[in-house]
Nucleic acid binder design. Structure first.
Lengths: 192, 192, 192, 192
DNA sequence: GATGAATGAGATTTCATTCAT
DNA sequence: AATGAATGAAATCTCATTCAT
């Protein structure tokens, strides 16, 4: 499938360095055919983004609407995001490197924001039910939380952090432990 | 100066979309002259990176070698990174978007790592002196910490987070409060 | 019908700028089907040309072989050509713009010439029977005559000349008055 | 010079069939250089048109503002146009085949019209001074006149009419004799 | 007859880089 | 140091044509 091929190629060479012909070759088709399905190279990238980001959003939303307490919801969100590295590393590579901060992405800003808003709501709910400290700015916290997760993915993408099964599991634990419990002694938190 | 012009152009259009002629025009010189000072377009980007990243590293190192307690050192690191947005937004834009995850930067991996290592050592020192919880993986924590900071920068770069003076100050406070104190009630921490 | 669709499309966008898919879409068929009926895009154009040009030639020939005096025959020829604009403007557009001078039409030169030859013979007959001035080169005159008519069509095609019913009728009158008035010994000529 | 090369190439192969590389090769430059001077292939064609059409317009205007009687002015206009074939056949080929009736030419409509207006004014002046028949529509007549001339050029371009020096001179004479003979009161007209 | 996915030659255009001046 | 004309590799995209279904 063309999108899968595109993800593999973008992951390997980066969007700008990938040629349309590379994608076509990887997909086993003539490059012209790509233009039957996509109007341009950029549209391919945007489609990759849209399809997968909306999946992410759905997963997050499912978590948000579950009956779990907010603390566990944050843990579940972390798990979804970090597990995606094990499951679809190329996709993560592309989402992290090419899409998330590209200047070309102005059209998708709303979709990006939606993910942060979900996290923010979970935090706010935790503040409302008394399990989270109310004085923290929930919006900023949602960005910090997401950033921490994404940086772990980045570390794996760049080969700077070990990414065995154990390490990934440990990372999940660390993120929640850290962000929810804090570094300082006082704030220890039970494993999720 | 050529590098300043390059930063402005890269910040606006992204590295790949910027033409050498754009940089030259912004710098008020003929594009041929750029090749007297830099061997290639990529060398310009790398120079931007090197000069500024090493400045960042120096600042972090100064903080690390101060006599402040680890908790305050983390706060100082956050302040340096986040204040840079107010001082040199274009530069931050470039560092965040183009450099930090670009495949072009394989040569600079060591320099990038150095920054994380500083953070990691601060955390480890805090664990050693008893102010930080020892069970947290310091390496992962350093990435998460940096990621949280970078995502705030990203939010400002993308125009998704308000970036007035007050908000930037508030963000500094939130990062440290959150990462050090945790979200949950038990772990409150005094303002730095 | 495919040819009609082709004429409409060629008239609107010009031959070279028209895609086979445009013609097919206009005809309401899949583009592949077009190749059951025509060997190539160019063959479509040539067929348009051949079918209509031969009709024109027939009409001219009918006029030539009528019993009318040469002067009236020229008027009838002008009327046929100019009226075609009212009846089939798209077709005229194509014939005028694409066909008459296209390098693609080298095979059809003979057919094109035939039309001029008819006009030339009418003129020669008029010179023979004394109604036209004998010193005029009949061959050149036939081209000038045809050119005058075609330029009126061009004016209409380009939207530079008013093309209401009255104006078209007036144009017929003017052409004959002008061109034949110059041919006839005395100058002025009665309306045809 | 690039424009000259373009004219030669367009004249030989037609605009759409000519590749940018053909023009560059004919001009003895790399094709990229063409884009220093022209934004696109179409701009090359438009420049060819504009530069030469405005020259034509100047020539016509000079004739119009001379002291010669209208009849002689028409003769001079015919001479300029027809002589251009001898002087710059490739240019005429391009102007006649590619430019004058191209759908791409919507921007230049005003410039085209200006030429016709000059002719029209000459005719009107002839009607005013009594040398031309007043009942003829001067505007239509200008189009017919120009069309007759252009068709002669077309005949030469297509190789359908003999174009030796003598024949060109003869054609000039015939056009005026024919078209002006019809305009003048009495019919016959002295050679110009 | 009819479809439209698939092909791939080939066209335009871009732009980093060179180098004579 | 400084210019910008010149180069040409390379990239994207188009579209006539084919052909399995």
């Amino acid at each position: 499938m063309i999108l899968d091929a595109a993800v593999r190629v973008f992951a390997t060479k980066g969007y700008h360095t990938s040629r349309v012909g590379d994608i076509a070759e990887e997909a086993g088709i003539a490059h012209g055919l790509l233009y039957h399905y996509f109007g341009s190279k950029e549209e391919v990238l945007q489609t990759v983004f849209r399809e997968n980001w909306s999946q992410l959003l759905e997963a997050f939303t499912r978590i948000e609407t579950s009956d779990d307490p907010p603390l566990e919801q944050l843990g579940a969100i972390a798990k979804v995001l970090l597990r995606s590295w094990r499951d679809q590393p190329d996709l993560v590579r592309v989402m992290v490197r090419e899409v998330a901060r590209s200047p070309q992405l102005h059209g998708q800003v709303d979709e990006i924001r939606a993910v942060f808003v979900v996290i923010q709501r979970v935090i706010e709910r935790g503040q409302a039910d008394g399990s989270f400290r109310p004085e923290v700015d929930a919006r900023l916290a949602s960005w910090i939380f997401y950033g921490g997760l994404e940086e772990l993915l980045t570390g794996w993408v760049l080969g700077q952090l070990p990414d065995g099964d154990q390490e990934v599991a440990r990372a999940e634990q660390t993120v929640v432990d850290l962000l929810c419990g804090g570094l300082t002694r006082a704030g220890a938190v039970a494993p999720v």
